[in-house]
């Protein structure tokens, strides 16, 4: 059997399990955390993992499990918003350029090429240095930076699909360009769009973590995975568990989604 040809291969199932587990933890975190994630307790500073505090406590005596649950929630909300901004703009750009083509397509794609050749974190840093740090600016900056990646995928699907018979039929029946683009063609791009949304989510999680790690993303006292790692860095010697919990959470998130998207992409 060809590996990966089967959607239900081992890695795909593993990805689904990891993602369900991680999502369960994060969704629970919106309603319930074992302790108040921002409550400080001087008596409990830097205490190692125990039955009371499963992942230990940080330098202010805050429960790390609770902070990871809440912090991952913040990271997820930011990442989903980034994907939403990027994918909706990217879909529009990709649909227009792929469907109409011509000089407009040519110009936009050249711009895309230039933008994608730069590391996204560098572009995000330019944006942050101009507009200032903070969650909203991060969403806007990273959302815009990821537009080309979606535009490219949607565009290539549109170029293929616009020649198909069902589109020609719709045209014969008098459907307008915009109806054809968004009612007839767009629903058929899901096959490639969904894996790229998952990968986009991963990139957004990693980018948020990176920017918050540099102190330019989520601002304290709000917890996010990158923010926690940045705080944990100073306590690597005394309380290494502080860094491990949010780090493992990032890895599991990214791993789960990329295994799923790998499984989806192989199913053709």
């Amino acid at each position: 059997m060809q590996p990966g040809k089967n959607k239900h291969d081992f890695n795909y199932i593993l990805g689904l399990s990891i993602t369900s587990l991680v999502l369960l933890v994060v969704l629970t975190g919106f309603f319930y955390t074992p302790y108040d994630p921002n409550k400080m307790d001087a008596a409990l500073r830097n205490s190692p993992p125990s039955l009371l505090h499963l992942f230990g406590t940080d330098n202010f005596g805050r429960d790390i499990l609770s902070r990871v649950m809440k912090g991952a929630g913040t990271t997820y909300i930011i990442a989903v918003s980034i994907v939403f901004v990027g994918a909706s703009l990217g879909t529009i750009v990709g649909a227009l350029t792929g469907y109409f083509g011509g000089w407009f397509d040519e110009a936009i794609m050249r711009l895309n090429d230039v933008l994608t050749s730069f590391p996204s974190i560098l572009l995000a840093l330019v944006f942050v240095s101009v507009f200032g740090p903070g969650s909203y600016n991060i969403i806007l900056a990273l959302g815009i930076i990821f537009v080309p990646s979606y535009a490219r995928v949607v565009r290539s699907e549109f170029i293929v699909l616009k020649e198909r018979d069902f589109v020609k039929n719709a045209k014969l029946m008098g459907a307008g360009n915009f109806r054809i683009m968004f009612v007839h063609i767009l629903p058929n791009t899901g096959r490639v769009l969904i894996p790229s949304l998952l990968i986009g989510f991963n990139n957004a999680v990693l980018a948020e973590a990176g920017l918050s790690f540099l102190g330019l993303g989520v601002q304290p006292p709000q917890a996010s995975l990158g923010r926690m790692l940045s705080e944990a860095q100073g306590y690597l010697l005394d309380s290494p568990w502080y860094a491990i919990a949010p780090g493992v959470m990032i890895i599991l998130t990214v791993l789960g989604f990329s295994l799923i998207s790998g499984g989806l992409a192989n199913e053709k």
Partner: peptide, 23 residues
Amino acid sequence: LDSLITLVNQVFMSVPSFFLGMM
């Protein structure tokens, strides 16, 4: 073996380099 290689690769690709640096 294929699944294993893919899995190990994916795990390492999922680690942010700054967290790896801390580890």
